[in-house]
C-alpha cells in the first residue's frame, strides 16, 4: 500500500495535475475568503470551507480522480500492478490515500486564511479545525466516488464527467423532492462547517466513502475474470 501511495502522490507533482489542483483550490478559497469574510467583516471561517467544498471540490476532485485507474488501464501499466505481489485492496487504498493527501496538503495551506484573520480579531481555532475535518471527510467521500468511476472506464473524460454530474446534481434535485438531499454530500457538511460535531453526518460520510472504496475493489477483482 505504501509503495503505491508514495508513487501516486509523487506522480501528481510529476505532471501538472497536482499543481493545477492545489492552485485551483487556493483560487476558489481566496475568492470565497473575500466574499464570506473580508467583505462582511466576519471572523468565522465555516462558510469559507462550506462554499469551497461546494464549488471547489466540483472541479478539483474529478481532476485528481479521473486518472487513477483509467490511465493505468489505457497505458497497460495496470498489468504491472496486477501481476505484482500486491493485493488489490492495497493498491486501491494506496491510490485513494494519495488523493486524500493531496487535499490534505491544500487544507494545511488554507490555514493561511486563519492566520490572516488573527490580525483583525480573535477567530476560534477549534471551530475552524472542525470545519477542516468536515471538509476532508466530504472530500474523501467525493474522491471515493471519483475513484470508483475511474475504475469503470479507460476513458478519463468519461470518469470526470460522471463525477462532476454526481457532485452537481444535489444542487438541483432537492427542488424536485427533498429525498434527494439525502444523497447530497455537501448537505452533510452543513453542520460541521459551523463547528458542530455531528456523529450522524460523520458516520454518513465515512460509510459512503467505505462503500465506494469497496465497490472499486470489487470492480477491480471482477475484471480479472472478465478480461
Amino acid at each position: 500500500m505504501f509503495a503505491v501511495f508514495k508513487k501516486e502522490l509523487k506522480s501528481y507533482f510529476l505532471s501538472p495535475i497536482g499543481y493545477i489542483a492545489i492552485g485551483l483550490f487556493l483560487l476558489v478559497f481566496s475568492v470565497f475568503f473575500y466574499i464570506t469574510t473580508i467583505e462582511v467583516f466576519a471572523l468565522d471561517l465555516g462558510s469559507l470551507y462550506y462554499a469551497t467544498a461546494m464549488y471547489g471540490l466540483l472541479f478539483v476532485v474529478p481532476l485528481i480522480t479521473m486518472r487513477m485507474f483509467a490511465e493505468e488501464r489505457k497505458n497497460g501499466t495496470e498489468q504491472l500492478l496486477l501481476t505484482s505481489p500486491r493485493s488489490i485492496t492495497g493498491i486501491v487504498l494506496g491510490k485513494f490515500l494519495a488523493a486524500v493527501a493531496l487535499i490534505a496538503i491544500t487544507l494545511v495551506i488554507s490555514l493561511i486564511y486563519f492566520v490572516i484573520l488573527t490580525f483583525f480579531g480573535d477567530p476560534n481555532i477549534v471551530t475552524t479545525l472542525v470545519a477542516m475535518v468536515g471538509f476532508l471527510l466530504v472530500a474523501m467521500a467525493a474522491i471515493s466516488f471519483g475513484m470508483f468511476t475511474s475504475s469503470l472506464t479507460e476513458n478519463q473524460i468519461v470518469s470526470a464527467i460522471i463525477t462532476v454530474v454526481f457532485l452537481i446534481l444535489p444542487w438541483f434535485l432537492p427542488n424536485i423532492s427533498t429525498i434527494f438531499s439525502e444523497i447530497s454530500l455537501i448537505d452533510k457538511f452543513a453542520k460541521m462547517s459551523s463547528g458542530l460535531i455531528s456523529i450522524t453526518e460523520i458516520v454518513g460520510l465515512l460509510s459512503f466513502t467505505v462503500m465506494f472504496i469497496l465497490f472499486t475493489i470489487i470492480v477491480m477483482q471482477r475484471r480479472k475474470a472478465l478480461k
Partner: peptide, 30 residues
C-alpha cells in the same frame, strides 16, 4: 506472483518516471 517476473507484450511503463525511479517502484512493489 512473488516468484514471477513478467514482461508484458506491450511493455507498459510509467512514462513520467525516470528509468531509475521506475525500477525502484517495481522493486518496492515486489
Amino acid at each position: 506472483k512473488r516468484q514471477i517476473g513478467y514482461m508484458p507484450e506491450s511493455t507498459p511503463l510509467y512514462s513520467d518516471l525516470t528509468v531509475k525511479e521506475f525500477i525502484r517502484y517495481m522493486a518496492e512493489l515486489k
